[in-house]
Design a protein around this nucleic acid. Structure first.
Lengths: 343, 343
DNA sequence: ATGGCGAATCAAACCGGTTTACACTCATCA
DNA sequence: TGATGAGTGTAAACCGGTTTGATTCGCCAT
């Protein structure tokens, strides 16, 4: 660990500790000459200020946190999360801020985690996987921990918020399918307790008119497969299925083909979130890329502003792009992918 | 943030700060009666000790770090990482230790990150994605930051190490394919600069006898597809391909089918790492589940021991299980998956 | 000569815990 | 009866930074 302290540097430079501190922070005027001496001494001794001492004195941890209450199994399923984190990091690294990641098994552990974070470990938190009336919202408000909500949240809250318009791409895909003559379009959603799953399901219902062909999945391949089987067994089976993520879509596609259906002739299929695999499947899977990294960057920036005392605000990241590919009968050009920005 | 301090608790309980500290840490004997008073006061005031003050006084951050120098694109590809992290967390949560995650764009940023971590931010680090003569090994040794290497590392080093035997499942799969009559077995590897990719490639070469049908990929779907095309275009095309991860395998499988090959009759395919999709594809993909969470747990435990001053040691986590599924012509029983523990 | 003022620097207090050195009480033992 | 020491508790030092109040010095206006 750091053996050399600010006192060593001060001695080496022949000045007081305070002078060293000011020379580096610029909080007080220091003559150019002295500053040079200080920098030289720091360089010579290879001094790196102690993060913990700084955190204590500043009452700032220089860290933000993400707490995940998901099942490890589900975390591994998720292509959104890693890219989101990468986006967050790209902003944090500008300010030497660290990201603390916690995976907790239950609500009790989650509460403890947030408490500990609020008491000196972190300066703020990002909230993912929002649900209706999410208990964490009032809880974090109570803890007085600056927070940014990632995803739409309907209830009242004092926080900044990053959201996207998931309804537009859904409408876009359905319009596309309708234009191709599809009349029975089904939707396999994610768990409806999540606000983003429900937003997609509602957009589907609004566009289709009813939800008789809506099935609630859980984002896993197993549920995609099972619900596809269920839908295809209907007397009036759907001619197109819209899945709320690519994992379910790929499992569904695979199942449908095994049943002898050809894609997209017998069944058109669309995913959501644009998994890295999707463009390389045969047929390539139509999906919606939502640029998780952009959302991560936006969330990190909002949180930083929040920590510095800015007013909370909501930012809509408009980054959903529908990639129409072969699984919905996209025209087969030399370019395998036809992209359209959602309006 | 934490307004109530240990001094408030001491006043409330009518004792000295030191007594509060001892009552909670148990470092000194405190009478049951006094301890009860202290606990009651702490409870009443809702006191949570400040992590930063504690970190400074203890010279311990109660945090460990993982620094990733990968491309965000590649991170999103990886099903190993999230599960690994979940395993790490399950051990850390036992001791109120936080995990700091940093994604850095280049080596310069990576060095800065490790320096800052070593100076009060973290007590130790986990090293992933090891390469030959990895510069980080001597660098971290120099920084005097307790470290655990995840993956085999051949060079000399003073650290603990978690490794797995990736050669055994490769041998196992090849033996299985041979038994089914396959003679031309190809391998699409990961980047050979990574030690784990090379270990698999070497196991393949040793089992097959030569590496004429070895192609170096980069774990992406695009490379899986491209190299599959290359292999299938050979005059003596392989009848089986072993991929070093499932993403490449699925892309390859998809391509082969589009070429009119039937799987596994015309081409047997095996992946590695057992993606959550693989068991649900049709045909289900043979793969090797390597229990990343178990490796995460082992790594976290070794690091904790290391931080507490234990001698470094190497732990071999034997958790590779080959799941023989339809893509290599597994017998089609009612149970879709036949598992065999590698010897 | 005197007061006022800004710039540069320093010593000391402070952040909120942990740890050390010491004091006090009471039972035990020679 | 005085020495010994185990059992509890406290005050103060300490971890390594940042921030504040005071001080010194040069310079200008009065």
């Amino acid at each position: 660990m750091s053996r050399t302290t600010i006192a060593d540097v001060a001695r080496e430079a022949g000045v007081a500790k305070a002078t060293v501190s000011h020379a580096l922070s610029g909080n007080r005027p220091i003559s150019e000459e002295t500053r040079a001496k200080v920098l030289a001494a720091a360089e010579k001794l290879g001094w790196v200020p102690s993060q913990s001492a700084r955190a204590l004195a500043n009452r700032r941890a220089n860290a933000i946190a993400v707490v995940l209450a998901r099942d490890p199994e589900v975390i591994a399923n998720d292509s959104f999360f890693p890219a989101f984190i990468a986006g967050v990091e790209s902003v944090l690294s500008e300010t030497e801020t660290a990201l603390i990641l916690q995976v907790v098994p239950d609500r009790d552990a989650e509460e403890r985690a947030y408490r500990s974070l609020a008491h000196g470990r972190a300066d703020g938190a990002l909230l993912l996987d929002l649900r209706d009336d999410d208990w964490r919202v009032p809880f974090l408000d109570d803890l007085d921990l600056p927070t940014v909500l990632v995803g739409a949240y309907d209830g009242p809250h004092p926080f900044s918020c990053v959201r996207t318009d998931d309804a537009a791409p859904i409408r876009d895909i359905i319009a596309h399918l309708r234009a191709d003559g599809h009349e029975r379009i089904a939707h396999v959603s994610g768990p409806l307790r999540y606000v983003h799953s429900r937003a997609r399901a509602l957009a589907y219902r609004d566009a289709v008119g009813d939800d008789r062909l809506l099935r609630e999945g859980d984002f896993t391949a197993a549920s995609g497969r099972a619900l596809t089987a269920e839908l295809l067994a209907l007397p009036d089976r759907p001619t197109a299925i819209l899945y709320s993520n690519d994992t379910m879509a790929i499992a569904g596609l695979s199942y449908a083909r095994a049943q002898g259906l050809s894609i997209p002739a017998d069944l058109a299929i669309s995913g959501f979130d644009d998994d890295h695999l999707s463009a390389h499947l045969t047929p390539a899977l139509t999906s919606v890329s939502s640029d998780p990294a952009a959302r991560g960057r936006a969330a990190a920036r909002l949180l930083r502003a929040d920590i510095l005392g800015a007013e909370p605000r909501t930012e809509v990241v408009d980054c959903n792009i529908v990639h129409f590919r072969e699984s919905t009968g996209a025209p087969q050009t030399t370019a395998p992918t036809v992209s359209r920005r959602t309006p």
